[in-house]
């Protein structure tokens, strides 16, 4: 293992050193292919981000795939209704590893302005693991790009081996999550308790 300072010194002399891990992460983070689907108004901002003015292609994520089999990033852009939630989870399950999820907008994070509605899921993270949350209603395309860069940083920091390696490299971690069923009053189960651990609030009264 060459240390950081020496490598910087060498790169100044036009000698580039890398490791498999870095090469792997470099390749993956610069070619994130998002799944082509939108749920509500945030999707319009996502479309704007892919057009010429904001140009998501600068970050290698312009290849919106129409099939989950070819995508490795799911941008949950918009309100997830309880009727739609099983479809979203099923699409996530059908994506090949490694896969990442960006929850775009207040609705995908927590239900947003429709939080107290009877048919809105209070955050897609109740069913699938979310990597980056982008707040906003809707977030501007710059915010989406920032979220994408944040995800790229996260990927750059992933380890290939060792106990800290990400979920998709661990053999026993699932690649599919249970799809909720339509119940008589709510989705069944209303959340994936193995996945979703909200911070318990301890407050005065």
């Amino acid at each position: 293992m060459v240390e950081e300072g020496l490598r910087n010194e060498l790169s100044r002399q036009n000698i580039f050193l890398t490791s498999i891990q870095e090469l792997y992460n470099w390749g993956r983070r610069n070619s994130l292919w998002p799944l082509n689907f939108g749920l509500a108004c945030c999707a319009i901002e996502m479309i704007a981000a892919s057009m010429a003015r904001f140009d998501i292609a600068r970050f290698g994520a312009e290849v919106f795939r129409p099939s989950p089999r070819q995508a490795d990033l799911m941008i949950v852009a918009g309100t997830v209704t309880k009727k739609m939630a099983p479809m979203v989870v099923r699409l996530y399950n059908q994506m090949p590893e490694p896969k990442y999820v960006i929850a775009m907008g207040a609705c995908a994070i927590s239900g947003g302005p429709f939080k107290r509605g009877y048919n809105v899921l209070k955050g897609i993270d109740r069913y699938i693991p979310v990597d980056v949350y982008i707040p906003g209603c809707p977030p501007r395309p710059e915010a989406l790009l920032h979220g994408l860069i944040t995800l790229q940083r996260k990927i750059a920091g992933e380890r290939l081996t060792g106990p800290e390696r990400p979920r998709h490299l661990r053999e026993l971690e699932p690649s599919e999550y249970p799809i909720p069923a339509y119940g008589p009053y709510d989705l069944d189960p209303p959340k994936n308790t193995e996945l979703w651990h909200p911070k318990p609030f301890v407050r005065d009264a």
């Binding site: 099939s67 089999r69 479809m87 979203v88 099923r90 590893e97 081996t161 699932p174 690649s175 599919e176």
Partner: peptide, 19 residues
């Protein structure tokens, strides 16, 4: 590094979210 993780839902023929 990366063990394959096939699954029932993953192998389904249809891929638009509907069962």
């Amino acid at each position: 590094f990366n063990a394959a993780k096939p699954g029932e839902v993953k192998q389904q023929v249809y891929e638009c979210g509907v069962e």
